[in-house]
Design a protein around this nucleic acid. Structure first.
Length: 234
DNA sequence: GCGACAG
DNA sequence: ATCTTGTCGC
């Protein structure tokens, strides 16, 4: 290194970390199953992770709901420090290490997981929903609150309306209106659940609010926990 | 080169 | 994602 260069190889390390993660996604994306392969839906799980603003701690939780009553039947938590930075397109490398321990602690048998984020609607067709599904070999659905990529077709304003999200000429997901006149959610295949089935399930889980009860329950859980742990209770 | 960018 | 209070609207 010459002149005033900073004697650090952290940028190279970061570049390698990202390159390796992307290569792993491309490799694992071949394992994703895009057709329905799920049994009776008795218990559905929601998963989410909350973070400390400028710190490095995270609070993760998986909440299991009775598929019929939507009542919470079990909650598993895990706390730790993030091992990977947030990089658009590499979310699973940040959240899986936080979520997998939660699933290990679970005593309930789950039939499906609704993820906070995308599945096949992803630069390499392997978003967090696919990664979690393949890692656990469990059916998963991706349900994101914001669009990561793709072109969304015209969408009617009534609840239940949906339109294709196209990437490179291929339909990778659906914009789904869960409430009249409210911003849609972005649904995509995670693993072992077809896109039409994913839409039907998300719509059924989001009957009173924009987001499915699974993600609402998980989000609520991790945020209460985070605020209590960080002393931010108002 | 510029802008976009799940959580 | 995170911090933060009140406030506008159905």
């Amino acid at each position: 290194m010459e002149r005033g260069e900073i004697p650090s190889d952290t940028v190279d390390d970061r570049a390698d970390l990202v390159a390796n993660a992307m290569a792993e996604q491309t490799r694992l994306s071949l394992e994703v199953e895009e057709t329905d392969r799920l049994g009776e839906l008795r218990r559905i799980a929601g998963a989410d992770v909350a973070y400390e603003k400028y710190g490095e701690r995270f609070f993760a939780a998986v909440v299991v709901l009775d598929a019929h009553t939507l009542e919470v039947v079990e909650i598993a938590r895990h706390e730790g420090e993030h091992p990977f930075p947030y990089v658009p397109g590499l979310l699973s490398f940040r959240e899986l290490p936080a979520l997998l321990p939660c699933f290990e602690k679970l005593t309930s048998t789950i039939d499906l997981v609704v993820c906070d984020g995308n599945g096949r609607l992803h630069p390499r067709g392997f978003g967090v929903a696919c990664h979690l599904g393949v890692a656990l070999d469990v059916p998963t659905i991706g349900c994101a609150k914001n669009l990561l990529l793709g072109e969304v077709g015209p969408l009617a304003h009534e609840r239940g309306a949906h339109s294709p999200i196209v990437v490179d000429g291929i339909e990778r997901g659906s914009a789904l209106r869960t409430r009249d006149g409210v911003k849609p959610v972005y649904v995509s295949i995670g693993h072992r659940v077809s896109l039409p089935s994913a839409r039907t399930i998300v719509l059924r889980l989001a009957r009173d609010y924009r987001l499915p009860e699974t993600t609402r329950a998980a989000d609520h859980e991790v945020n209460l926990w985070r605020r209590a742990a960080l002393g931010l209770l108002a």
